[in-house]
């Protein structure tokens, strides 16, 4: 598939494709869903629906720091671009203002983001967008899109991507309990900790198999999908009870629990 920025060469996102994406996302919101897998789906569909080359999602922790949660593809290079946005970048701006940052040409953004913009350019990106995850008056995170071409998101596209960001918020909050601020806090903290567990498991698998952390993530995700396990559950088992998935950690003695 050709990779170009949102809106370019097209007038609007195809309605059929859009409907499919929303149905697919809604289907994942069953009682026992994995937050990280859900956010991964949102990011990969957000990227494909507007032909952005990469998308990621960040959530604010209790200190108001933006933490990486999920991306359309997991690579060290991309993770650095997300992590960097604790200090500066479109997600931080979006998080502060509560409004979307769209159609930013990275070549023209060096003054605005002196560290982030050059890094993003050297990673091969030309344009960036960020959409707020809004919960009532609060902004709880941001959805980040990168393109390899400069391009203009039409207002129509902006509304659609914002709708995807809103769906992400609803999934995070599990709609039925959205009224309760303390449960919002509990859910967010749980999700943030799940992401930490995934990083720890990436390290353990990388070492067990002598592979990169990116390859370790692929291995773990594919294993979870093949065996119909939640990614977060597999990650937790890898670091706390490796005997649960012996084939995933094969070839090395399993650490004691």
């Amino acid at each position: 598939m050709p990779v170009f920025a949102c809106g370019r060469d097209r007038t609007m996102i195809a309605v059929e494709q859009l409907a499919e994406v929303f149905v697919e996302i809604a289907d994942t919101l069953v009682d026992d869903f994995d937050v990280i897998e859900f956010l991964q789906l949102v990011t990969s569909r957000s990227a494909s629906i507007c032909n952005a080359s990469s998308a990621g999602l960040l959530l604010a922790d209790a200190h108001g720091q933006l933490q990486f949660m999920a991306a359309s593809q997991e690579s060290v290079k991309l993770l650095e671009l997300f992590q960097l946005q604790n200090a500066e970048g479109p997600c931080l701006d979006c998080f502060h203002t509560g409004t979307a940052v769209v159609n930013t040409d990275l070549d023209d953004a060096i003054e605005r983001w002196p560290v982030f913009a050059p890094r993003a350019v050297s990673a091969g990106f030309r344009s960036v967008h960020a959409f707020p995850l809004r919960h009532r008056k609060d902004v709880i995170g941001a959805l980040n899109l990168f393109g390899t071409e400069t391009g203009q998101l039409e207002s129509h596209d902006v509304r659609i991507i914002q709708a995807l960001a809103d769906v992400a918020t609803i999934g995070l909050m599990q709609e039925r309990v959205i009224q309760d601020q303390k449960i919002v806090t509990e859910q967010l903290q749980g999700a943030l900790n799940s992401r930490i567990t995934i990083e720890q498991a990436k390290g353990a698998l990388a070492r067990s198999h002598g592979i990169s952390v990116d390859a370790a993530f692929e291995l773990m995700r594919d294993y979870a999908r093949r065996n119909h396990h939640h990614l977060s559950d597999v990650a937790l088992a890898v670091v706390s009870d490796p005997a649960v998935h012996p084939e995933l950690l094969s070839g090395r003695p399993t650490p004691p629990v």
């Binding site: 990083e199 390290g203 353990a204 698998l205 070492r207």
Partner: peptide
């Protein structure tokens, strides 16, 4: 976090 997982495996 990744390093924690690595050391866990290295040291058993």
């Amino acid at each position: 976090y990744q390093a924690q997982g690595m050391v866990m495996v290295d040291l058993g």
